[in-house]
Design a protein around this nucleic acid. Sequence first.
DNA 1: CGGCATGTTATCATATATGATAACCACTTT
DNA 2: AAAGTGGTTATCATATATGATAACATGCCG
Lengths: 73, 73
Amino acid sequence: MKNFRLQRKIGEKIIQIREIKGITQQDLAAACNFEKSNMSRIEAGRTNFTISTLFKISQALGVRLTDLVDTAD
Amino acid sequence: MKNFRLQRKIGEKIIQIREIKGITQQDLAAACNFEKSNMSRIEAGRTNFTISTLFKISQALGVRLTDLVDTAD
DNA sequence: CGGCATGTTATCATATATGATAACCACTTT
DNA sequence: AAAGTGGTTATCATATATGATAACATGCCG
């Protein structure tokens, strides 16, 4: 598992948008059909998620996939 | 494995950029440090790749991650 | 204080992505 | 015809993402 930096950046983006929308990690996880523990792992950059996982999150957040990936790197 | 459509779309985007740059699947795969067979799988949308795999490809293609993900969906 | 909400971390089983090899097809070139 | 090029597909072993559960920490509130 590499690219911690990228994963962390995207994780931070998820947190950022999630907090703006005022949802809890718990609720976002539920909207994605997984557990809050897994969402925590993702947001912390501790997992090299697949594109479908990221897509689920983007859908749950109501943003485009691009918005999560666009970390200005 | 779901989101065949998304994976396929991104795969098509990879093909598109790869062909514009005039590189073979073989060479792109080599630049990413994997085999052409795996690149074929990815381009065909037959794998739910991780973000780090997509990132490697974007780097090898000399484009931003966003450019691959931006499928106007 | 005792609950409750929010988030983190460890750990487990299971599914699947990754990396590699090999066989194959369609073309092109020698 | 034989060899080379570009791509596809099947299959395998291994690493790891996913999904789940549980224990924990922190802060807040009744």
